[in-house]
Structure formats: C-alpha cells, structure tokens
Nucleic acid binder design. Structure first.
Lengths: 191, 191
DNA sequence: TTGATTACCTAGCGCTTGCTTGGTTAAAAT
DNA sequence: ATTTTAACCAAGCAAGCGCTAGGTAATCAA
C-alpha cells in the first residue's frame, strides 16, 4: 500500500521532483529521472506515490502552501498599506527567485498538467493566496496608492511579478531589492 | 523528400496544430491527433514536416511573424507617443485573445519546448518584436508618460499583458477595449 | 520471538509514441 | 504519351514510458 502521506522521505523526493519539473517540465521528466536523483530505483517511487501525477500534486501543494505561509507572515509584520504592498512585492519576488523557488514556479507553470480532481482540491489554497493579495491591493486603493477596479489591479500587479520567471536572472551586483523598488514605483507614482 | 517549406496545405496543418498545442500543450498533443484534425493519416504528416518539432517550429514562426507584422502596422498608423502606447496595448491584447491567438500564445508558452538550434533561429524575430516594443516604451518615457529604467519598464508592461493569457476570458458585455483602457491608466496616471 | 510495517530492489509487461518504408493516385510538366 | 512531382495511405517497428508483481532486509511493537 501507499498510505504514508507525510513522511520525511516523501518530502525529500518531492523537493527533488520539483527541481526536475522546473528544469525539464512535468511531461519531460520521467519517473526514472526522479528516482535517479533521489537515489532509488524507479519502481520504488510508487511506494511513496500512487502515480506520477501524485508527485506533481505534492510539488504544487508544497509550492502553494509555502508561498501562502510567507505571504501571511508578511502581512502580519507590516502596519501601513504602503509597507504592506512594498513588502508583499519583495516577498513575491523572493518566493519566485529565492532558494525555495522550484516548487512555487512549478505550481504556476504546471497547473494545467493536473487533472480536474487535483485542481479542485488545490484551488482552495490558491484562492486563499489570491484573497490575501486582494486584501493588500484593496488597502492600497483605499489609501490612494492605486486606482481602478480592484480585481484588475491585482491581476495586473501579480501578472507582472509572476512573469519575471520568464526573464529574471539573479546577478551579483543587481539585487532583487532594486527590482522590487522599481516595480513599486512603476505601479504607484501618484504622490 | 520533405522540402516544400511554403505550401498552402502546410499552412493549414500548422494552424490546426496551433489550436491543439494551445489546448493540450505540445507534449500532450500526439501526431495522431494533429493528423486526425487535418483529415489525413499520421504518417502523412512527415511528408510536410521532417519531425514533430518542426511542426512546433512552424507554429511559433507563424505566431511571432503575425504579431510582429501587426505591431509594425500599429506603430506606423499612430503619431504621438501616447497614441502609440495606447494602440500597442490594445493590439497586444487583441493578438493574445483575438481569432488568431493560438499560434502566438503557443509561441509564448512552448518556447522552452524548442531545441536550442530552433530557438537560435527564431530569436531573431523575437528580438525584433521586443525592439519595437522598446521603441514605444522609450518614447513614452521621453514624453513623461512612464518613468524609470527603460528595459524594466518594458518587461513589466509586457509581462502584465502577456500574463492575461492565464486569466482573461472574453465575455459578452465586457470588451477588451475596457481592459486595455484600464491597463493604460494602470501604468501611466502621472498627469 | 513473532508478526507487522516501512522502504526499498529486480525484472519486466503492456501500451503509446514518433517515425519509417514501400506503395498508390491524380495532377502537372515535358 | 510519358515522366515527374505532390500528396497521401497502409502497416508496422523500435524505443521509451508509466507502472506492477513479487520478493528482501531492517526496524519496531506485541
């Protein structure tokens, strides 16, 4: 049987899989590749997961949960709407480009590789994540930092940030903080 | 032999493939699916293309070239930097969500499915496309419509627009023009 | 001491995949 | 009238894929 949903070993393998899914995509990553990097034989994977798709599910859950936790903390740690927005932008960029990036990037890119049932389960976390962002955006609009339709503002802001996965390359010299600052000025610049 | 690079039939099949690649992704679209929708047997596909990857190449080339032509026309038709920017935003959204969207969306999403050699060839069109956008952004900065580092401004703007492929659903009632207007206000709003 | 549980391995099955080979037919060119 | 070319089909091969079955060794509770 498979059953053990929260073992340490499973988490390790999930992290290995996240790295591969991000590098090669889900479809082009074979179970043999995952097994090799995890140091086991391919058949042994199915002791931990019932099928390959469950590995993707585990990766995406890890990515979404991690990002949600970070976002929650960020909101708690700040006081004004401006601080909130600034901090959330920086956190989002760090989530996408910091050391735990793999799982979260996979959760964005491979969402459509999940089957409908898995998506229905994970959408709960995703919705909560978006709701927290919406809260930040709404507050920013109330303070006059942003103007316009709340939902569209959130989609524009998050879209720009998420799109950085397609072009941002960390370099020594250019810090992610600089990009975050420039982006904050990009979306506000009213005062 | 394969040789006929610009036949009418090839264009038809490429369009069929674009639709499937957008709906199911490149990897999950089989040559048998493409053949069926094109009304031929799967083996016959290889009379028109040397392998499956060449079909993707054809789709992406179609998508990029189409978008580039449209962008060039848009720049010619307008006069001021403001008109230029407004028009380019609307055209970009129409390219992504209008009737010829498939090939262009595939050119964005499946870029990483190409092998290195194909990418090297197509990067020329892509660079020209980005250069035209940079021209529009630079002009907008000169006029004071935007502020900041030119390259980052372009990436932020295009990122937001391209990200709409993940959420925009055309509805009767809400027009794409409204979204374009709201986006223009989102990125400018200095005056 | 025994029995269950966890974590693996060995070996390979069955299926789908991209692609090939050798032919056919109809139209166009000579 | 004959040859060439373009566009297809029929049949199937080889490779790679996800996944399974049956077994072993170590750990741990009863």
């Amino acid at each position: 049987m498979t059953i053990p949903k929260q073992s340490l070993r499973r988490k390790e393998i999930t992290t290995v899989a996240a790295k591969l899914f991000k590098k090669h995509s889900f479809d082009r990553t074979t179970v043999r590749m995952i097994a090799k990097d995890a140091g086991i034989k391919s058949g042994s994977l199915f002791h931990h997961y019932k099928d390959k798709e469950e590995i993707l599910y585990a990766v995406i859950e890890q990515g979404l949960s991690g990002a949600l936790d970070t976002l929650k903390k960020t909101i708690k740690e700040t006081n004004s709407a401006e601080e909130n927005l600034k901090a959330a932008i920086l956190r989002q960029l760090k989530t996408l480009h910091g050391k735990d990036k793999d799982a979260h990037i996979v959760s964005i890119i491979e969402w459509s590789s999940l089957d409908e049932a898995s998506r229905q389960q994970l959408i709960v976390i995703r919705d909560e994540y978006e709701a927290h962002w919406q809260y930040i955006i709404d507050a920013a609009i109330s303070e006059g930092l942003l103007q316009g339709q709340p939902r569209l503002q959130r989609l524009f802001v998050l879209g720009s940030l998420n799109w950085t996965i397609h072009w941002y390359k960390p370099k020594h010299g250019v810090q992610i903080e600089d990009t975050a600052d420039e982006f904050y000025r990009f979306i506000t610049k009213s005062g």
